[in-house]
Design a binder for these strands. Sequence first.
DNA 1: AAGAAAGTAGCACGGTTGTACTACCATGGC
DNA 2: GCCATGGTAGTACAACCGTGCTACTTTCTT
Lengths: 200, 200
Amino acid sequence: MPRLIDHDARRAELAEAVWRVLARDGVAAVSVRNVAAEAGVSAGSLRHVLPTKSLLLAAAMELVVERATARFGTHPRDLETRADAVALLSEMLPLDDERRLEMRTHLALSAETANDPALAELRRAPDDGVRTGCRVVLELARAQGRLRRGLDLDAETLRLHVLVDGVALHLLGGLLDAETARTLLEEHLARLWVRSGPRS
Amino acid sequence: MPRLIDHDARRAELAEAVWRVLARDGVAAVSVRNVAAEAGVSAGSLRHVLPTKSLLLAAAMELVVERATARFGTHPRDLETRADAVALLSEMLPLDDERRLEMRTHLALSAETANDPALAELRRAPDDGVRTGCRVVLELARAQGRLRRGLDLDAETLRLHVLVDGVALHLLGGLLDAETARTLLEEHLARLWVRSGPRS
DNA sequence: AAGAAAGTAGCACGGTTGTACTACCATGGC
DNA sequence: GCCATGGTAGTACAACCGTGCTACTTTCTT
């Protein structure tokens, strides 16, 4: 047997190369050759792991979801203060380079959905992830008695999801800075929280 | 002199052809030849009006802004009820095929900004347009005495802008239907309006 | 030590791309 | 009637695309 490589790790490296090319040079520059060069391997070698371009793009999209859910999953889950809830939600915002790359990839490849049936299925995954992320935050808050009574959790999840995506889009476009983004989330949650009862 | 054509009209036809190819087949399919075929002319003829691909894409982007501002500008401007305000804001949402095409174009070409310096400048125009649209709605409401006192118009414009973009994104992604989109706007405005005083 | 398997690199292919350039056509002013 | 001119179409070219295929290298098993 020859040297074995970790296929998953390799796929991740190549997917990240897609992210970088995408962000730096645009969708049009995402070719098998360019991505291979960015990853420091030959095109033939890349094709050994990801045989078609469609699979390459799918891997790039899948890694976005994987990284985002991992990040969200390892975040501490006690919502001591409202700021903790904001911090948890902020995990889904493009606040550093890594997350900006991920979101740009998500947006660009979502647009390419029409062309590539393999991407069509994956398009829903990030949206679903953010949706359940929002829901989880609200459910945690409710479990800890922070939420006002009589709130429709479905409706509030939807509203929060719209807000988070709107803020994310504006962050990516440079229309918002991190601080005001935080404030927007904070103010939104303030309307859902119990009226500063015991200590929140 | 030979037959003269209306260059502006021609540019608009070609820009709309870009929209359609973009939405139907994805960004990758937007080539000079494909767009020319979609518009029913030859590539050579297209190049006579839009000499480079960069200019073609810029024309597609410019038409988005042009159409959107025209639509917003001709909308009746009396905010008799809150529903009128919602209707005015809805002008900026992708609620019909034309506006869906426009938004998809805006999103896709924004992502391509890195590649094309000519697009980089145009990227801000749609954002600025929506922003001032939101501001205009709030200013009209205030002028007609519908707004609560003590509101920071800058801050509220920003919040409304985030909401409108979030709703627009969700509409385009099929995560929202027109009716709930309308409700979201309505509820947001309800918090800014005077407490149903004289009759609103 | 030897061979088989896994990984790598690279070339070849048909096709498409953006753009330059040229020939052709239709029309308006003289 | 004619020709200059704006519009149209088509071809040519170098570059790049995705993908198939083949040689070469490396390493583990026997």
